[in-house]
């Protein structure tokens, strides 16, 4: 039943007439306790859906900020199981905010899809985005997730043409993630005018809400995308805040990590909330 959290959240926001603000942070960056505190603070800062990265040693679709975040998390001892533990700890105080895991296939394959899905559902995970598992390879993973009610959320890209789109959105639930730029995370900037028709196309093909990510960093960009999409995803900008706090150093650098990320989240949330969803 857990995917109802995602459906409920999008339904409630549609009633409000605004887009969802989706925040990506790397689980366990820079360490477990700091990361948990940060994640616990996100809903209060105005985040509607949390995308929680699970670290992988070879994140091929990430730009330098998230690559470094993954390395910090791994160095701090994060594993897939620890990331699920973080979700379970978060759920002790928040039963409503949807959590979507995001990462790469090998840790899931290594754990075994069924074992992973069962543990994820128990922890309170609502969805999964797996970057390097296209629909052609996803049957086993999808079976395992469907059996426990966790949504498999698919990525679509500017290169996904009309012929391929139905294949990509098949067996997806919750929402569809539109990758707004051809590139890695956190490098190029999204062009809101090009995003609008793409969102409409993906929405028509999937019948699901469409969240847009990759290349959204500023409140201005977030507000522009919030007018044309059902959700706005920001990731690298938060990860940059973690890095900046660590580089500034000092005795309270971990507290500063949380404070900086939440302050950034509040500013972006305000921008998203100020933008009314237009005709999509």
């Amino acid at each position: 039943m857990s995917h109802n959290r995602i459906d409920k959240r999008f339904a409630a926001l549609a009633a409000e007439g605004r887009a969802a603000f989706v925040a990506y942070v790397m689980g366990g960056d820079p360490d477990y306790d700091t990361s948990l505190k940060t994640v616990q603070g996100l809903p209060g800062a105005g985040v509607d859906i949390i995308e929680l990265g699970y670290a992988f040693s070879d994140p091929m679709a990430e730009g330098p900020p998230i690559q470094r975040a993954a390395l910090r998390a791994l160095k701090a001892g994060m594993t897939l199981n620890r990331t699920l533990q973080l979700v379970a700890d978060f759920r002790k105080s928040d039963a409503d905010t949807p959590i979507v895991l995001m990462g790469y296939l090998n840790p899931l394959f290594s754990a075994g899809y069924e074992a992973f899905a069962a543990r994820a559902a128990d922890a309170g995970v609502d969805g999964l985005i797996c970057v390097d598992c296209p629909p052609e390879e996803a049957d086993e993973l999808t079976d395992a997730l469907e059996a426990v009610g966790v949504s498999l959320i698919r990525l679509t890209a500017p290169t996904t043409d009309d012929k391929r789109l139905p294949t990509v959105v098949k067996r997806t639930s919750g929402f569809v993630y539109y990758v707004s730029v051809a590139g890695v995370t956190g490098v190029k900037s999204a062009d809101a005018s090009a995003v609008a028709p793409a969102v409409a196309r993906v929405k028509a093909a999937s019948g699901l809400p469409v969240a847009v990510g990759f290349g959204i960093r500023t409140p201005e960009q977030a507000a522009a995308v919030a007018k044309v999409a059902d959700g706005v995803v920001v990731g690298s900008a938060f990860v940059d805040e973690v890095q900046a706090a660590l580089e500034a150093g000092g005795e309270n650098s971990n507290e500063n990590v949380t404070a900086r990320v939440l302050s950034k989240a509040a500013a972006l949330a305000k921008a998203v909330r100020s933008a009314r969803v237009g005709k999509a």
Binding site: D132, P134, E136, E137, R154, L155, A157, T159, V179
Partner: peptide, 22 residues
């Protein structure tokens, strides 16, 4: 046809690249 040698091989890339490898 799916690029498999038994269970090995296949096509595990990000969606942006899928149309290109196809």
């Amino acid at each position: 046809a799916r690029g498999k040698f038994g269970q090995f091989g296949g096509l595990y890339v990000a969606e942006t690249l899928m149309p290109l490898v196809l």
